[in-house]
């Protein structure tokens, strides 16, 4: 399973591609795809968004769905989805008012 991660051009904030081609700030809203066709659709949308100067550094990342929640396989992407592990009050986790489990 994969989702597509990127950073928004104007402010650099980490975003993910959600359903209907929207860029979402919460990984829980990301569009999860399960096959090559889905991946190609994500990449095609990302290429358009990159071309339209909305996002930079688009990248497919591996995720698992655990208890219905999108959990990236790599720690790097889990930290990106949460915010710095040392600052629970900063990044996405602050808005969620919860620390994302990193391990």
């Amino acid at each position: 399973m994969k989702i597509l991660a990127a950073n928004r051009l104007i402010d650099g904030i980490a975003v993910w591609l959600g359903p209907n081609g929207n860029w979402v700030e919460d990984i829980r809203d990301a569009d999860v795809v399960r096959d090559a066709t889905g991946e190609e659709q994500l990449l095609a949308t990302a290429r358009d968004a990159f071309g339209n100067n909305l996002i930079v550094d688009p990248e497919l990342i591996d995720v698992d769905l655990i208890d219905g929640e999108v959990i990236p396989r790599r720690l790097r992407e889990r930290i990106r989805a949460a915010g710095p592990s040392i600052h629970p009050n900063l990044g996405k986790q602050a808005a969620r008012n919860a620390v994302v489990h990193l391990t």
Binding site: N7, L9, I10, D11, G12, I13, A14, F50, N52, N53, V56, D57, R76, I79, R80, G83, P84, G91
Partner: peptide, 25 residues
């Protein structure tokens, strides 16, 4: 931001001014 410069054109310019892209921002 207007799209007149592409990311490939802009990246070396932003780096010359100390602007990196990191994980969160």
């Amino acid at each position: 931001l207007s799209g007149e410069l592409t990311e490939d054109q802009f990246k070396p310019l932003r780096l010359m001014n100390g602007v990196y892209l990191q994980l969160h921002s």
